[in-house]
């Protein structure tokens, strides 16, 4: 067993320690939902006010890139879930491989996002006063891009944090810190990563697939 694992004196046993860590993570994820919630509310308000503008503006987004990114995130969610299963069974090497696959997929997501952003910056489809594009009919199309860049920007920032966390957890795992008895950091990093995927599952139809 790894020397880095011990039960802190304020916990009665390892199980309670692990459950407390998980509950803490779930409460944090709750605040994450509310963080994105603010922008979701802005989205709802402006979409109801300007339904035609939202419909016209969403056509500026690339559905193919959005779909590929959705698939990439779903597969990365699957790989991190499989990685957690491997460490639950005490298979460190397999867990490292799955974590590495997750990190690679996260980077693929960001690369695709970069191409989308670069295209929009080039066309001037930017938030607020930076909006210089002239081809979207309807009232206040710059509002759509304010919301688009806020939602996808905060999300991409979460992906960056996720990559850092996954890398940290993977390095700790390679050093042998985790085992079938102790894998809490892997598990709660996985929870964070799934939430990032979960948010994207809603962002994708809301931004790319306005019917």
């Amino acid at each position: 067993m790894s020397s880095s694992f011990h039960v802190a004196h304020h916990f009665s046993d390892a199980e309670q320690q692990r459950e407390s860590a998980k509950l803490g993570m779930w409460v944090f994820l709750l605040t994450e939902i509310l963080l994105f919630g603010g922008v979701f509310v802005a989205y709802a308000v402006f979409r109801v006010w300007y339904p035609d503008m939202f419909y016209n503006a969403h056509k500026a987004l690339d559905v193919t890139m959005g779909t590929v990114n959705t698939a990439v995130l779903i597969v990365s969610s699957l790989t991190v879930a499989l990685g957690i299963r491997e460490i639950q069974l005490g298979r460190q090497k397999q867990c490292t491989r799955y974590l590495l696959a997750t990190i690679v997929l996260a980077c693929v997501f960001l690369v695709i996002k970069y191409f989308e952003y670069a295209h929009k910056i080039h066309l001037g489809q930017l938030p607020g006063k930076f909006y210089t594009f002239d081809g979207i009919a309807g009232t206040n199309p710059h509002v759509f891009f304010s919301i688009y860049f806020l939602l996808t920007g905060i999300h991409a920032f979460h992906i960056l944090i996720g990559i850092s966390l996954l890398t940290w957890v993977m390095i700790k795992n390679m050093k042998g810190h985790f085992s079938a008895q102790y894998f809490t950091p892997v598990e709660i990093t996985g929870l964070y990563w799934h939430l990032v995927d979960l948010i994207w599952i809603f962002l994708f139809p809301l931004l790319y697939l306005i019917g």
Partner: peptide, 19 residues
């Protein structure tokens, strides 16, 4: 844990509906 998640979603729904 499910209750924690659902309470977050409930707060978000209240936020959206009342706004």
């Amino acid at each position: 844990y499910s209750l924690t998640l659902l309470s977050g979603i409930a707060c978000l729904m209240i936020f959206i509906v009342i706004t």
